[in-house]
Design a protein around this nucleic acid. Structure first.
Length: 180
DNA sequence: ACGATGATGAAC
DNA sequence: TTCATCATCGTA
């Protein structure tokens, strides 16, 4: 089983975001920087789906910041918030339909069994910043996701997305998925 | 409960 | 060009 075959490809990401989000749980986010590899299991995600989702940055339409979400699936969307934090998302669904999965929590198996909760902490740990905005996650360089362990449906919890109180009726959508 | 701290988008 | 807001986190 070669490495390439484990890497999630564009077909995986180019599907309904809620499905992609749940299937990303248990997969391994792999970061390579200066020949060091960090491998982290994805444990907590949120879906942001289309212009009608008032919590999605694309609800304001196509801007320079959201442009990447309108492109092909499998690319990274990194943005900067609160003057100090980076947040990472993987673009999903077909070209021209803006959607993405945000990575909220990871668990690191390699070094000392650490885990992070919170999207900014995950970015900090994996050294992901604006320089990786738009990165193609399907090429197996610098940053990619590998097929991981299958999480049974009864181990997947749903919840409201965090920090989107401004999003009107969309606030209540159960579009956060995490491993219990 | 709140302040840090700067990009972003909307208003003007 | 200004202004309010923000998919957060650490300290209290």
């Amino acid at each position: 089983m070669d490495k390439q075959s484990k890497i999630l490809n564009r077909r995986f990401y180019n599907r309904e975001t809620l499905k992609v989000a749940q299937e990303m749980l248990g997969c391994f986010l792999v970061r390579k920087v200066k020949n060091k590899i960090i491998r982290a299991m994805i444990t907590d995600v949120e879906a942001y789906v289309g212009e009608d989702d008032l919590a999605c940055h694309a609800s304001k339409g196509r801007t320079s910041r959201t442009e990447i979400m309108y492109g092909p699936a499998g690319h990274l969307y990194v943005y900067f918030v609160y003057g100090m934090h980076f947040i990472m998302n993987i673009v999903t669904e077909k070209k021209e339909f803006p959607a993405a999965v945000m990575i909220r929590g990871i668990k690191i198996d390699d070094v000392g069994y650490q885990k992070t909760n919170g999207p900014a902490k995950a970015c900090k740990f994996l050294q992901i910043d604006k320089k990786l905005d738009g990165w193609d996650m399907t090429q197996g360089e610098k940053l990619w996701i590998e097929r991981g362990v299958k999480i049974p449906k009864n181990k997947i919890k749903t919840g409201k997305r965090i920090g989107i109180d401004y999003a009107g009726h969309c606030t209540h959508y159960l579009w956060r998925f995490y491993i219990s």
